[in-house]
Simulated scan of single mutants.
Amino acid sequence: MPTSQRSFAQALLANPDARPDALLSRIAHKHAALGVSEDQYTIVHKYLFRAIGDVLGEAVTPEVAGAWDEVYWLMAGALIAQEARLYQEAQVDPRKPWRQWTVVERREETPDVASFLLRPADDGPLPRARAGQYVSVRVLMPDGIHQTRPYTLSNAPGDRLRRITVNRVASVADAPEGEVSNQLHRTVRVGDELTLSAPFGDVVLDDSDAPLVLVSAGIGCTPMAGMLEHLAATGSSRPVWVLHADRTPADHALRAETVRLVEQLSDARAEFWYERDATEGPGSPTGLMDLDGLGLPADADVYLCGSLPFMRAVRTQLLQAGVPTRHIRYEVFGPDLWLTHAEG
């Protein structure tokens, strides 16, 4: 049984009268960014339960099958309702979720990171977006198969252009290279078109006067860049800490832009950590991120984006500094295996 359904079932057992809203919201936004429609739940049910029977055999008694069937449709019903609302709010027809965008500029941010600035190919209005949201990019691969990957909008949602910033995922040990990211880096140039979904995602910058802490590592800087640009564009006066960890200054995508945006804000500061070559820029110690001594306010709203090990380590430091769990929000691209534990 998929991890999300096991988590949903565990939540129901713990509190039968409630629904795990955080889990459902995260999944619903990802489904909407892929154009998932109501009828597809019936198809998934058919093949999922056939696969369960094939793998587990006689262990799937009628009682077991009936229980999991009930869990599946409870979860599916809740997701269908949420996704219908998301499509309506985004003014998206789930039967036609994709739109063509023209690349008007390509920027090489680092040797492995490129930004693509985009405008609608039909010159129509930009869909509504919030700082921190992402779009799905649907790419035709050399083998003729379409693959889809999510990429954060790395600029302010109110701009006349939209930007995605793509990290080229290299092959490491037994792990293959990232097919979509490498295809984008190799082939996409100014004038080309990309197929995008509308923006979705529930980890968004809220309107608030509370202190704000943006914590990222590696390409996790992209939602933070969009949030920072939005804060600068709206003349925000809220206190802001920008904390980022990377391998070297040269690997730090959007670094100069981050410094510029921090300088535009009336009450913002930046601290960068580098594993090596930490010789320049604002507060750039060598080593892993260490929040000790920064004096982060306990009432801050905190946003995390980076690898799971990084976010777990930083979350532990934040909790030790007195920041409540409910104030810590995070984004994970890929299977979200941390949610159940992080919400505890």
Rank of each mutant, 00 (worst) to 15 (best):
E275A: 10
G77F: 03
T187S: 10
I219D: 08
G295W: 06
T316D: 15
L288S: 10
V172K: 15
F49K: 08
T187I: 03
V44C: 00
L140Y: 12
A175M: 15
L261C: 09
L265N: 09
D174R: 14
V139S: 15
T152P: 01
I80T: 08
A198I: 02
H252I: 08
H185Q: 01
Y41I: 01
V262R: 06
D336E: 01
M141P: 04
A268P: 05
A78G: 08
V169E: 15
R163S: 08
P2L: 06
L291N: 00
G220R: 07
R315D: 07
S25A: 14
T325Q: 12
H45A: 14
V172D: 14
S266I: 11
P120T: 10
Y41W: 04
K30I: 04
V259Q: 14
M1D: 10
T325I: 15
A175Y: 14
A173K: 12
M75P: 05
W68F: 03
V180Y: 04
H31M: 07
S266T: 15
A11H: 05
D123L: 13
R329L: 00
D39E: 07
A67F: 14
T61K: 09
P120D: 11
V55S: 06
T110I: 05
A173C: 06
A65W: 02
Y274G: 09
T102N: 11
I80Y: 03
A131F: 10
P249T: 06
L308S: 15
A28S: 06
D39V: 03
R128H: 13
G35I: 00
V169S: 07
M289Q: 10
I52H: 00
H327L: 08
V92P: 11
P176K: 03
D159K: 10
V332T: 09
A300N: 10
E38R: 14
G295K: 05
P120M: 09
W73I: 07
E331F: 02
N167M: 15
A253E: 01
V242Q: 01
A198T: 04
H244Q: 09
S284T: 09
L288D: 07
A217E: 11
Q5E: 06
G226I: 00
D192T: 02
P2K: 08
R326Q: 13
F49H: 08
S136H: 07
G124D: 02
N15F: 07
A76D: 02
T148C: 06
R85A: 13
S37F: 00
V188Y: 06
S37R: 07
A22V: 11
T222K: 03
I219A: 14
D209P: 08
T110A: 07
Q5Y: 10
D292K: 14
L126C: 14
D290M: 02
P239K: 02
A22E: 10
L291G: 01
A233C: 07
L118M: 02
M227W: 10
S236H: 01
I145W: 08
M289G: 05
L184P: 03
A173N: 13
Y274E: 06
F272A: 05
E179C: 14
Y41S: 02
A78D: 10
Y151H: 02
G235W: 00
V71N: 10
L265G: 11
S208C: 06
L12P: 03
Q10I: 12
A217P: 15
T148F: 04
P239Y: 00
E177I: 04
E89Y: 05
R312G: 13
Q320P: 03
R85N: 11
E280K: 04
V314I: 13
L304R: 11
H230V: 06
R329N: 00
P20M: 04
L118H: 03
A198Q: 03
A11S: 12
